[in-house]
């Protein structure tokens, strides 16, 4: 399922326009992204939680030249599926 298919399914299920569903889907995804960018965790009961993990800076290597290059630290999002999602995916 792609984002546009999700939007269509939501619109059809609620009897709202595709455009309205699109705004809602984008608002939800943006809200999650904004919360993570602010360092918050996002906990969606029965679905899962998104947390931000920190990667330490490290020395990497250019595989082509063998040259050592510093890799800066960064923040990466991590998703942990919730109980209901885990069980439904595994059961089917």
């Amino acid at each position: 399922m792609t984002k546009s298919e999700l939007i269509e399914r939501i619109a059809a299920g609620r009897g709202i326009t595709r455009r309205e569903a699109e705004v809602v889907v984008n608002t939800v995804l943006d809200a999650i992204g904004d919360a993570l960018a602010a360092g918050d965790r996002v906990e969606l009961r029965g679905f899962g939680s998104f947390v931000v993990k920190r990667r330490e800076p490290r020395m990497g290597r250019n595989p082509k030249t063998g040259e050592e290059v510093p890799v800066p630290g960064k923040r990466v999002p991590h998703f942990k599926p919730g109980k209901e999602l885990r069980e439904r995916v595994d059961r089917s």
């Binding site: 792609t2 984002k3 999602l85 439904r88």
Partner: peptide
């Protein structure tokens, strides 16, 4: 209700082992 719809739609898709691609998100 719409937030629940969205989460349920994604869960349902994954429950039937269909991957979910949300461009710009993941």
């Amino acid at each position: 209700e719409l937030v629940d719809d969205i989460l349920e739609c994604i869960r349902g898709s994954l429950a039937s082992h269909e991957n979910v691609k949300l461009s710009g998100f993941g």
